[in-house]
Design a protein around this nucleic acid. Structure first.
Length: 376
RNA sequence: GGGAGAAUUCCAGAGUGGCCAAAUGGGACAGACUGUAAAUCUGCUGGCAACGCCUUCGGUGGUUCGAAUCCAUCUUCUCCCA
């Protein structure tokens, strides 16, 4: 994978770049829709590509490992062929599940023993086994196996956790070096910077991860309970240290405003379940703020969902109709809202990229933050 | 024509003397959601000057310190027999 930095904003740390993978190019800054089980919930690949213009999507190692299992993925010829998504993909390592399914796991130096959320069966993830699994899945970008502590973790815990993540990281890269891609396209491995909300730990982690000379670097463990301002300052600390000629990926973030603030601080890649999950739950993101489509005020509002939206659903359907579908529990409501939101996120980062080139990113961002924080 | 039963807060439906402004569902309304155990979860749903007070359980009138609950009567509905 190659990354070309095309332009750096004069009044912020924002960057525009281009990533080249064996499955195509990615223009940064970019938002990556989350497709945990090799499916962006509720959206056809056709619409993801042609309507929302998604350039890369995520899948999750933990979920695919449990179901359908590696035997199926391998026989299918990897996740691209299995899912028919022929553009770049990234797999998260399962590190986040070690955090979000905390009651079901036991951490040790060796790895993480956990019981499946599906059937309770017991499993062991180690840095080595996760790399093997990610090789079998076959995404263009693989994430290192890390521990993602709570954003409010005590310093002692955060420091110990960071040491564990760093030890695991070394083992991930050793296994990465020992193994080969299985499906004829190359795979990059991104390390993940941790360190909770402690500036010195973050700085230490950002220094540490560089020894691997990776194709890109991720910032993990943010937007997990800490205030947004703290998250922003952690991003600043880390991005001051990470190399400028590699993409930086802020994992799991976030709201549209979080993303703009991340871009302003030099982040190139984002992913978040928010557009799809919140969409299923009736929340629509627009350039003028968020809409709760379930609210009574939309009951007889027959205006388009989002006149400024880029998706075909935005002008085809009315707010009143979408509200009706959502309240009636129709699955089409989830599909429309998910597609709208994903298209919105991608439009937002695309506009950000344009403003970076145009040189007015900061001004534009400040205006957008005000608009985006409204509730309609 | 005769007999039996039922009427509860938006709906369904508990409650059969005080712990009842009234269980539970549903609906309505509002909120949450950040590397997806989420098409999920939470709150709220008589009124008010609101840690208390007022009005409410088909209508009216009683019994009782106290009634959604007991009695009388009226109204409406359902079922059974002709």
């Amino acid at each position: 994978m190659k990354f070309t930095l095309e332009h750096t904003d004069a009044s912020s740390r924002a960057r525009a770049g281009r990533m080249t993978t064996d499955h195509g190019e990615i223009l940064t800054p970019i938002f990556m829709p989350v497709g945990t089980a090799a499916s962006v919930k509720g959206i056809f690949h056709r619409d993801l590509k042609e309507d929302a213009r998604a350039q890369i999507i995520l899948a999750n190692t933990y979920h695919l490992y449990l179901r359908p299992g590696m035997e199926v993925i391998e026989q299918a010829g990897g996740v691209h062929r299995f899912s028919t998504w022929d553009r770049p993909m990234l797999t998260d390592s399962g590190g986040f599940q070690v955090f979000s399914l905390a009651e079901r796991r036991k951490l040790s130096d060796e790895g993480c023993r956990f019981s499946s959320h599906i059937d309770g069966s017991r499993h062991l993830f180690t840095p080595e086994s996760v790399i093997d699994t990610e090789r079998t899945i076959g995404a263009d970008i693989m994430m290192a196996f890390d521990e993602c502590p709570d954003g409010r973790a005590e310093r002692d815990y955060a420091a110990k956790s960071l040491e564990l993540t760093h030890r695991w990281l070394g083992r991930c890269f050793e296994q990465y070096a020992r193994t080969q891609p299985k499906y004829g396209h190359s795979q990059s491995l991104f390390p993940i910077v941790q360190g909770c909300t402690y500036p010195d730990l973050r700085a230490r982690s950002a220094e540490f991860v560089q020894q691997f000379g990776a194709d890109g670097y991720a910032i993990g463990g943010l937007a997990v309970g800490e205030p947004a301002e703290v998250m922003y300052s952690m991003i600043e600390i880390v991005n001051d240290i990470l190399p400028t000629d590699r993409p930086r990926y802020l994992m799991g973030v976030g709201t549209p405003i979080n993303i703009l603030e991340g871009i302003a601080r030099g982040v190139d890649m984002f992913d978040c379940v928010m557009p799809t999950r919140n969409g299923r739950n009736g929340m629509l993101f627009t350039m003028n703020g968020v809409i709760n489509i379930r609210n009574e005020k939309w009951r007889t509002d027959f205006s388009p969902i989002d006149p400024e939206g880029t998706s075909f659903v935005d002008t085809l359907y009315s707010k009143a109709y979408l509200r009706h579908l959502n309240i009636a529990g129709e699955m089409l409501a989830a599909q429309i809202a998910s597609l709208h939101n994903v298209a919105f996120y991608l439009d937002l980062v695309s506009r950000a990229r344009n403003h970076i080139f145009a040189g007015d990113f900061t001004q534009w961002k400040e205006q957008m933050v005000v608009r985006l924080s409204q509730r309609l």
